[in-house]
């Protein structure tokens, strides 16, 4: 049986944003990339979705307050 970590109840949805999408997010938030929260390149989920250093990952959390909350993390070494 193949294990897909993304299916685990504790893991929210991770998606890699394309360059244009990432750029758009950064302009909306009015910040630089390095100001985003980070995620390690070796992070099991980052590995699973094949994220590379510098990618911006969109995370859709199941929030207890907002039900759905979107956050971004940038992949670092």
């Amino acid at each position: 049986m193949k294990i897909k970590l993304q299916e685990h109840i504790l893991v929210p949805k991770h998606e890699i944003l394309s360059k244009e999408e990432a750029e758009k997010v950064l302009t909306v938030l009015n910040i630089k990339k390095h100001q985003l929260p980070k995620i390690r390149k070796e992070d099991p989920i980052a590995k699973e979705i094949g994220a590379k250093v510098g990618d911006v990952i969109k995370i859709t959390r199941n929030s207890l307050t907002a039900k759905e909350a979107v956050v971004y993390r940038v992949v670092v070494e």
Binding site: I3, L5, E7, H8, I9, L10, V11, P12, H14, I39, R40, D43, P44, I45, A46, I59, R61, L64, R73
Partner: peptide, 28 residues
Amino acid sequence: DYRRTTTNNILEIAEVLGIEAARNAIIK
């Protein structure tokens, strides 16, 4: 059922399931 199996060791979760899962585990 690995999808619904958890531990109370937060560092272990961070290692196996990643940082976002660890965040959820801390809150929980």
